[in-house]
Structure formats: C-alpha cells, structure tokens
C-alpha cells in the first residue's frame, strides 16, 4: 500500500524549493506523487532558467516562481504565501529538490503532526556520522546547531535540515527577513521566541553527487551574521 492510499490530509502540503533543479525534479516528482496527491504538492522555483515550471506542468504540480533568483528563503516565502492564501494550508512540509530527502519519511512527519498539532516546527534530524554525510557537513551542522541552541535556549538537533513541517500558525505569526538559506535558522529562532515548540524527527539523508548551491565559508559567515542579527533584534523587540 502506498502512502497515498493511506490518505493524505487535505490541509497538509509538500513544498519543494527549487533552483536549477529541473533534472532533479524529474526524478523526485514521480516518487513524491506516489505518496502525495498532486494537488497537495507545490514547487517554489527560485528564478531558474532551466524549464522548472514546464517540468512541474508535466506532472500537473503547481509551481510558483520568483522572477529572479533571490534565495531559498524567498522561494519558501513565495510557496508559503501561495499555499496558505490559495489553498488554506495548515501544515507545510518542505523538502529539497535535489533528492536528499526520502519520500518514505513523509509518514513520520504526518504522524508527528497528528501527535503534536500545536507544534510550530517539526524538523528532520539527519544521521550525522561519517559515511552517511560528508565530514565537512557534519562539522558545520554540529557547530551551527550548537550555536543556535545557545542562542535560543532550546536543544536544536539539526539547524540545517530542509526537511521540515511548518505549522500555518507559526508562518502567520513569524515573518522572516532573510531571503537566503539563513531563513531556515531564523524561523527556528522566531518560533522559540514566540513560544512555539520545535521538535525533531529522525530522517534519512541521501547524499548523491548533486551540485550544491552552498559556498561553505561565505555562507557560514553570512549565516553567523544573520543569526546574531536576529538574536539581537528579538532581544530588543520582544519582552
């Protein structure tokens, strides 16, 4: 029995942010549509010029596009806006287009949503051991997760995993200012400050030799600047 046959909740949507990922979507979408109705899937195209909307159209999947490349955070915001405004989404599960996240893990999120309907974020926690993940990624994930834990006062087990479920209530309450991948840490910080719980579920990580859009040093420095900015802003603006 496929997960699709297990009944997908009408108010839960899968959002796939994508940049130059037409080829990867050709692989991901057939698997995804085996588990999720096409009407509950949306691709947020971040200004790609590789025919991403056409690929989505071929699978009858909605695609919202930023006219220019702005960053993962901007693409997610665009997708959130569409899914909440047009579709009435209560929960949005984000998963990367590059196939790093396993469709087989979606039921884990559905179960967690049913068990924790008041949660703000249910985030994937990847296996961080050599062999399952490149060593550089393990180090940067551990460092950023520890640092975020320090800033939020909560135990953040994986600050970088893009496989997450966001509650609509949180998205409506927590507008983010950063447009690139820092947004995924920013929203954790805002969720913690607003009193939403951030929970973690174990997920698989499938590393392939796909092209990454991350530049390690520059992006880490930008991430650091972003989280410190948000930390100071939240301290200043919330009691």
């Amino acid at each position: 029995m496929t997960q699709h046959q297990l009944q997908w909740p009408a108010d839960t949507f899968v959002l796939v942010p994508a940049y130059k990922a037409a080829a990867a979507l050709n692989v991901l979408l057939p698997k995804l549509l085996n588990a999720v109705p096409a009407s509950n899937v949306c691709v947020a195209d971040d200004g790609s010029r590789d025919g991403t909307p056409q690929v989505c159209g071929g699978f009858d999947v909605a695609c919202v596009s930023n006219p220019v490349n702005k960053g993962k955070g901007a693409a997610l915001e665009q997708g959130f806006s569409h899914l909440m405004g047009d579709k009435g989404a209560s929960w949005i599960i984000t998963m990367d287009a590059d196939g790093q996240h396993a469709v087989a893990d979606l039921p884990v999120f559905l179960r967690s949503i049913a068990e924790m309907p008041d949660a703000g974020i249910i985030a994937g926690r990847r296996t961080m051991r050599p062999g399952a993940m490149p060593l550089s990624r393990i180090c940067s994930n551990m460092l950023t997760s520890r640092f975020l834990s320090l800033l939020t006062g909560k135990r953040i087990l994986d600050s970088q995993c893009g496989f997450r479920a966001y509650s609509g209530r949180l998205l409506a309450a927590a507008p983010c200012r950063f447009e690139r991948f820092e947004m995924e840490s920013e929203i954790i910080m805002r969720a913690c400050r607003l009193g939403f719980s951030v929970n973690f579920v174990n997920v698989q990580t499938l590393y392939f030799s796909t092209q990454s859009h991350i530049s390690h040093v520059a992006d880490t420095l930008r991430w650091l600047r972003a989280v410190i900015t948000i930390f100071l802003e939240l301290r200043r603006t919330t009691p």
Partner: peptide, 14 residues
C-alpha cells in the same frame, strides 16, 4: 489579496 502578498495579508488580519 489571495493573489498578491497573501501571507502578509494573513499576518495583518491576525
């Protein structure tokens, strides 16, 4: 509206 700035509208309504 539902076609422009939906999430910002939802936030402002709330």
């Amino acid at each position: 509206s539902s076609s422009r700035g939906q999430l910002a509208v939802i936030r402002q309504c709330i």
